[in-house]
């Protein structure tokens, strides 16, 4: 009986939540309020018009002050962009925490799958396979990176390429391709590296690795002493990803 009471209370709470949600929507559509707001806006507009005329009288004085204000704005803007960075950092942290949470939940579900597949082997096998792939990519990527760190570049490259071929739709697919290119680049095999970087840029244009791969393409051209293509790649990079760190790098290197 207690169970039932609990459930009813729970259902009531959930119902209340949903109810307020619906009511909120209705409030948005409330026409009368909208009309009123419209009127208010019109009044505001009129007020602004009045202000404008008075402002125009002060135009000359303003022009003098404008330069000062401009300077202030710049400071403000840099402050703002800094704050933006802070906020994006917070966002990253949140994202990280979310990922961590989802990781633990997948772990939990995996455990459940394991237990169930032990219990009855037929059930839920499909789900375990999916979960399995997901974990494999990360672990195998880690192993390949370990090889890269241990200067075993040829082996690491093969592992990255294999991973990229095996899991082309995974989050890490562009990373794998990029790191395969890095393996060539570190060994100063610029031609091969160039092809791989190009693949990253072309296949995963919206991925995180785009700017880095493009910048590295320029460095490959530099290694091949092809100055023209180097500059072209970097100007492309600057126009394509103007806000990336790599664009700044490219600007600094080309002297612009």
């Amino acid at each position: 009986m207690k169970e039932n009471v609990k459930k009813i209370v729970l259902a009531a709470v959930a119902g209340a939540c949903l109810l307020t949600g619906c009511a909120g929507q209705v409030a948005v559509v409330n026409r009368a309020e909208w009309e009123q707001q419209k009127q208010e806006i019109a009044a505001l507009k009129a007020g602004i018009g009045g202000l404008q005329t008075s402002v125009e009288k002060l135009h000359d004085e303003e022009m003098k002050q404008l330069k000062l204000i401009n300077a202030d704005l710049r400071v403000l803007f840099s402050d703002l962009s800094r704050n933006l960075n802070v906020v994006s950092g917070k966002l990253e942290e949140n994202q990280y925490n979310l990922e961590k949470l989802s990781k633990t939940t997948t772990q939990l579900t995996e455990r459940k799958f394991v237990v169930r597949s032990v219990a009855g082997r037929d059930s839920l096998l499909q789900d375990t396979v999916v979960a399995e792939d997901k974990v494999d990519v990360q672990k195998l990527f880690k192993i390949a990176r370990e090889d890269f760190n241990a200067k075993d570049y040829e082996r690491a490259r093969k592992e990255f390429e294999e991973l990229n071929a095996k899991f082309p739709d995974d989050n890490l697919a562009d990373d794998c391709r990029y790191w395969a290119a890095e393996c060539y680049y570190v060994q100063k095999k610029y031609k091969e590296a160039l092809e791989q970087y190009r693949e990253v840029v072309e296949k995963y244009p919206t991925g995180d690795m785009g700017p880095a791969a493009m910048f590295k393409m320029g460095l490959c051209y530099k290694g091949l002493s092809d100055k023209k293509n180097m500059e072209k790649t970097w100007t492309d990079l600057i126009s394509k990803y103007p806000n990336s760190d790599e664009a700044m790098q490219a600007k600094a290197r080309t002297g612009n």
Partner: peptide, 10 residues
């Protein structure tokens, strides 16, 4: 090695 490699095997 990752446990996931076992699949359905013990």
């Amino acid at each position: 090695p990752p446990q996931e490699l076992l699949g359905s095997e013990m």
